[in-house]
């Protein structure tokens, strides 16, 4: 597995994602700086949680226009895997790599808790390992996780089986309780819950592991 994690100024889950990936992949994970525009050949690029560039504009809006995003878009075009978690998900929607947008939580407050998430789609390289698991427990920690998408797009997402994760008890007002979505080619996943915080039994859940092990199996090396 040739995996890398991007660090934007203000990313704060980059290390956590590297640690989780390395634990499951068993290989070292490359760090990418936000100003890099030429990337080596990679199987997977992770966009971590945090507050890229402070997120003083819309969450992810500035990061979506950073040099590295061009390279990530090309990687995705080539069919490479891209995983955006929390702020990473926000960046992917801002960059147009995923449909919809993430706006302020319906309750207006930041919310950090362990939530139950339904794996809505197990036929993807990200979620195949969840086959048979109806619900999993993953932590969320965000202020802007309220997924919005128009009626037409929602129908498309649902119809094409691109809703990967769905909250059991919607914590942020997301349309259709959507917690994570796949791109049309199913090689880009964005999700608000933090699978990287759920790979170690000491932290209360290991339900994030199958996501990483699915990818490892899909890449096959």
């Amino acid at each position: 597995m040739r995996a890398a994690v991007v660090t934007f100024p203000g990313s704060n889950c980059d290390r956590d994602l590297v640690v989780a990936m390395e634990a499951v992949f068993g290989t070292s994970v490359r760090r990418i700086w936000h100003q890099e525009s030429d990337l080596p050949s990679l199987d997977l690029i992770g966009l971590p949680g945090g507050f890229s560039y402070g997120d003083y504009l819309r969450c992810g809006a500035i990061a979506a226009r950073s040099p590295v995003l061009g390279a990530i878009a090309r990687h995705a075009e080539r069919g490479g895997f891209v995983l955006g978690i929390c702020n990473g998900f926000q960046i992917l929607t801002e960059a147009g790599l995923l449909p919809g947008a993430l706006i302020r939580n319906a309750g207006l407050a930041f919310v950090c808790r362990m939530v139950e998430v339904e794996v809505a789609e197990t036929s993807s390289a990200f979620t195949r390992g969840y086959t048979g698991a109806a619900t999993v427990r993953l932590p969320i920690a965000h202020h802007d996780g309220n997924y919005v998408v128009d009626e037409e797009e929602l129908a498309r997402l649902e119809g094409e089986g691109r809703v990967a994760f769905r909250y059991r008890d919607n914590p942020n007002g997301s349309r259709g309780s959507i917690a994570g979505v796949l791109s049309l080619r199913r090689n880009v996943l964005g999700l608000m819950p933090h699978p990287e915080r759920a790979v170690d039994p000491l932290l209360g859940s290991v339900d994030g592991r199958p996501l990483f092990s699915s990818l490892l199996a899909a890449v096959g090396r």
Binding site: N12, C13, D16, A20, F110, C112, R113, P139, A141, L203
Partner: peptide, 14 residues
């Protein structure tokens, strides 16, 4: 109160 704080970031909160 504490659900408005990210108490899990850094993935070491046991």
């Amino acid at each position: 109160i504490w659900e408005q704080y990210d108490h899990m970031v850094m993935a070491d909160t046991v």
